[in-house]
Write a protein that binds this DNA or RNA. Structure first.
Length: 423
RNA sequence: GGAGAGAUGCCAGAGUGGUUAAUGGAGCGGUUUGCUAAACCGUCAACGCAGAAAUGCGUUGCGAGGGUUCGAAUCCCUCUCUCUCCGCCA
């Protein structure tokens, strides 16, 4: 959510930026400016009225003390008038504030200047790559066949217990999950992140803070009776730890890492790329979150991207980093890098991580600020990234490391799995 | 699930209808100082108006929302949360 004052001062720049994101409802920008100016007028008027009321109340008190009843009564009439006026003004102001808020939450975050033009994933820009694409032996198969052959995960069993998209990991498949989680967490700790284990259900305010609400209800599982939502990512509870918090500048950057299961309804995505572990409703992920000074946040974004690249390299997977074009970015992000790994058996790139800088978009919603040297508070920047999400990593590991003898486990994982090959 | 107590600023804590949320402490900034400590001064939320800015003025803020009153931290109603005891329970 942008600040109304910022929009009023940078209207043209905001419109241009939003256009890059392929945002259509540009009239909202004008509406925001207009409503905000009305709000300020009302506020000014109300403040003046209340100032007079307060003045009168003080005088009435004095008069009563001095025993001048008649004069006091006279002032009371004036006070009653003012009360009526201020009540009306207050109603109008509340109305304007509400309307302003309703408009503001519909505006996406304007993308960073370096974001490429474009409306679809083809226009994303490759900015880095690593590893090499393996040449598989002729009998190589996709991960869903491998999972079955080596009893690593059972999708049909998940359907029986819950529904499609809820895999049951079994035997060495389950251990591999645990090994990856542990490895990712250990790497995050080495990189200076502090670990947290957050709740997996969140309330409405929390879902609003990171931008899931309003509007994206359909992507989350909801507990109707208590109005809680199952988290789609640990980003939501972890970032909201700092909702309504004023940090000291010296505490920045705040670095947190959390493992959590993630729950996503993925409404409207059926039929395409959903085979095996490519798209599931419940999956495990280690998330890294940073809260950073606005002047350093882009530097931090690069650092986070490097961290993720390091993980992929250690897992011996071929990867590339894409800078998302305006039209492919999420609502809340100002700049997003997607990490993709090549799935040799499916012959396509799978998105395994998304690292984003949200600038003040989330912090404004959450009122997450820091106090600088000048003792003034200002909004902090929030960033987060998957480091990493498991299912597609597992898919890529199985496919890329398969040999006629079995699936080779990368060296860094062996201490965690306790086995070197799945056969 | 039952009963009781409570919620005041960054923290502690006073305040039962009358100007300004007392007082103490922490943090930060400043003055003083050879350095440290200490002392002293200031500051520590949001919004509005004026100003290039420093800043000044005003309004709001005592868990949330409503009400009574010229005037509410204080009185009334609704809700939320916390703590204590009992019951149940991994």
């Amino acid at each position: 959510m942008l600040q109304a004052g910022y929009i009023a001062e940078n209207k043209e720049a905001v419109i241009t930026a939003l256009r890059k994101k392929r945002f259509k409802e540009l009239h909202l920008v004008d509406a925001v400016v207009e409503i905000d100016s009305l709000r300020r007028k009302l506020k000014h008027h109300l403040d003046t009225t209340l100032a007079e009321s307060n003045q009168i109340a003080r005088e009435v008190g004095e008069l009563f003390k001095e025993g001048k009843k008649a004069e006091a009564e006279q002032l009371k009439t004036r006070a009653a008038e003012l009360k009526e006026t201020s009540k009306n003004l207050n109603d109008e102001l509340t109305q304007a504030e509400l309307q302003l808020h309703e408009h503001l939450v519909l505006l996406p975050n304007p993308p960073h200047a370096s974001v490429p033009e474009g409306g679809s994933p083809e226009q994303n820009e490759k900015v880095a790559e690593g590893g090499s694409i393996p040449t598989l032996f002729p009998e190589a198969v996709p991960h869903w066949d491998l999972m079955e052959r080596y009893r690593l995960a059972d999708l049909a069993l998940g359907v029986k217990i819950t529904g499609a998209g809820f895999p049951v990991y079994t035997a060495r498949g389950a251990k591999l999950q645990r090994a990856l989680i542990q490895f990712f967490l250990d790497e995050a700790l080495k990189a200076g992140y502090e670990e947290v284990i957050p709740p997996y259900l969140v309330n409405e305010e929390t879902a609003f803070g990171t931008g899931q609400l309003p509007d994206k209800e359909a992507q989350m599982y909801e507990m109707k009776m208590d109005k809680y939502y199952l988290i789609p990512t640990a980003e939501v509870p972890v970032t909201n730890i700092f909702r309504d918090v004023i940090l000291d500048e010296k505490e920045l950057p705040v670095k947190r890492a959390a493992y959590s299961p993630c729950f996503r309804r993925e409404a409207g995505s059926y039929g395409k790329d959903v085979r095996g572990l490519n798209r599931v409703h419940q999956f495990d992920k280690v998330e890294i979150v940073q809260i950073q000074h606005p002047e350093k946040s882009y530097q931090t974004l690069e650092e986070m991207a490097k961290h993720v690249q390091g993980l992929l390299t250690q897992l011996e997977l071929p990867w590339r980093m894409m800078k998302l074009c305006g039209g492919d970015m999420s609502f809340a992000s100002a700049l997003t890098y997607d990490m993709e790994v090549y799935s040799a058996a499916q012959e396509k790139w799978l998105e395994v991580s998304s690292v984003s800088n949200f600038e003040t978009f989330q912090s404004n919603r959450m009122k997450l600020r820091f106090r600088g040297k000048d003792n003034k508070t200002q909004l902090a920047h929030t960033l987060n990234g998957s480091a990493l999400a498991l299912p597609r990593i597992v898919a890529a590991l199985l496919e890329n490391h398969q040999t006629p003898e079995g699936i080779r486990i990368p060296k860094v994982l062996q201490p965690y799995t306790g086995f070197e090959i799945i056969n």
